[in-house]
């Protein structure tokens, strides 16, 4: 599903022409198979979020290749990346990233709107998805009127609405209490087992990492897949 080859990345910090180069990732190689749950763990500042942002296309890669679902994405233009994300990727963020002025229904419906799906079809699919995450009664609530767990479920519904084969999750339980965390992890496992969705999860939480088929550690920007030092089979 995902193939990352020889990916390196360095941030440029400071004023133009006087900027400092701060290397974050060094020659990263990573393979994620279809239907797999892979957890990328590491300390704060180790480069795991940068890796996810590169795979998401939120930052442009400098060297190396990224292939997702058979398509080489590292050289895509901004527009093509946006189209690719809409078709192939779902996102779960730590802080949910819901649009505050939109209701739960409208937030979940948004990817369908962007794709240009008809209003009737949108309504059916959105209601079905809200039902799936147990929020059909909260469809007209704004994010501010929902609990953290409910907001994360809206966020998951939005990530799933276009049936993407891959979901990228950045610290998905970071803002949840233990009960909601457990519920979310069960839901991820269920989605993976029933629908075969691939998950790439960035976390520093061992509870979260425990549901992954593979756990990949990243330390000081180095990751070598297959190495027993960095890869722990579940």
């Amino acid at each position: 599903m995902i193939t990352v080859r020889n990916l390196s990345y360095a941030f440029k910090i400071g004023k133009k022409e006087k900027e400092n180069i701060v290397p974050v990732l060094h020659h990263v190689d990573l393979q994620v198979a279809e239907g797999e749950i892979v957890a990328i763990v590491g300390r704060s500042g180790s480069g795991k979020s940068t890796l996810l942002n590169l795979i998401s296309g939120f930052i442009k890669s400098q060297t190396g290749d990224i292939t997702i679902d058979g398509q080489q994405v590292s050289k895509l233009s901004e527009s093509k990346w946006a189209e690719f994300r809409l078709e192939h990727l779902g996102f779960i963020f730590q802080s949910f990233q819901l649009i505050p002025s939109m209701t739960a229904f409208e937030n979940v419906e948004l990817p369908l709107v962007l794709k240009g799906v008809s209003e009737k079809e949108r309504k059916d699919q959105t209601m079905k998805m809200l039902k799936k995450v147990g929020l059909e009664k909260y469809q007209s609530h704004y994010p501010g009127e929902l609990s953290g767990g409910q907001q994360q479920r809206v966020s998951i519904a939005r990530a799933l609405i276009l049936n993407p084969p891959l979901i990228l999750a950045d610290e998905p339980t970071g803002s949840l209490d233990s009960e909601n965390e457990k519920e979310l992890l069960n839901f991820i496992k269920e989605l993976n087992e029933k629908d075969g969705i691939t998950f790439l999860i960035i976390t520093h939480d061992h509870e979260v990492a425990s549901i992954a088929h593979r756990k990949v550690e990243i330390r000081d920007g180095y990751l070598r897949e297959g190495s027993k030092l960095h890869e722990v089979q579940r």
Binding site: E87, L89, F91, L98, I99, L110, R158
Partner: peptide, 8 residues
């Protein structure tokens, strides 16, 4: 958020 989801 819209761009992250897939708005061009």
């Amino acid at each position: 958020i819209m761009k992250a989801i897939g708005a061009t």
